[in-house]
Nucleic acid binder design. Structure first.
Lengths: 97, 97
DNA sequence: ATTCTATTTGGTGATTTTGCCAATCATAAT
DNA sequence: ATTATGATTGGCAAAATCACCAAATAGAAT
């Protein structure tokens, strides 16, 4: 792989890495039709809130979700609904419902 | 997350993990319209052949590619072309060409 | 049977990712 | 100004991933 190709595929891989964690996939499904708070998500998943915050940060940095502040609450929502399309496509084909 | 949900999202995450590496994405593109040998792929990417073999194994285990033996060569090809669709969709939307 | 080529497997150190705790920051309420 | 609540950040240990080397396997050819 030459340098350009190398960079191209590394960037693409970054996106898959951002999605490659059960908690982060759960978050995507949770915020797909309902704006949610960090605390709510944390409770649903059952992990430390600092861990949740870091997962949210990863998704945010890749522009997969968006956070909006109101008072001192931060509401998260799905930024690119298309993510759901290719996720369900992937799952159907690879046969995990 | 209860146990079932946990398992569901872990399984889904496994697929994204399988795709979350530049070399493995490169392999998918390389075999999408041309059946290829391990050695050929190794040369193209420029890594140790044992490393390549392990990457191929990961894709194989997730049924993303298929290997067929002829003599003592193993030819790899893309098993689920749909992977390309959702990859290009993902990339377009997330704005990495 | 031995040798040769293609590929896989085992092992190990290096790097990355993950998750918790503690500390900090941001905003609101008193 | 102090306190309280929601969220993020820094640090560290545990776990997972990665890449190389060396050794093993599979099959073909001699």
């Amino acid at each position: 792989m030459n340098k350009d190709i190398e960079i191209e595929f590394s960037e693409k891989a970054e996106i898959f890495k951002a999605l490659a964690h059960p908690t982060r996939l759960f978050i995507i499904h949770a915020v797909k039709d309902k704006i949610m708070l960090v605390k709510e998500l944390t409770k649903l998943v059952g992990i430390d809130i600092s861990t949740m915050s870091k997962h949210l940060d990863i998704l945010k940095r890749h522009k997969i979700i968006e956070g909006k502040r109101n008072k001192n609450f931060i509401y998260y929502r799905l930024a690119i609904p298309c993510v759901l399309d290719f996720m369900s496509c992937a799952m159907k084909v690879i046969s995990k419902k």
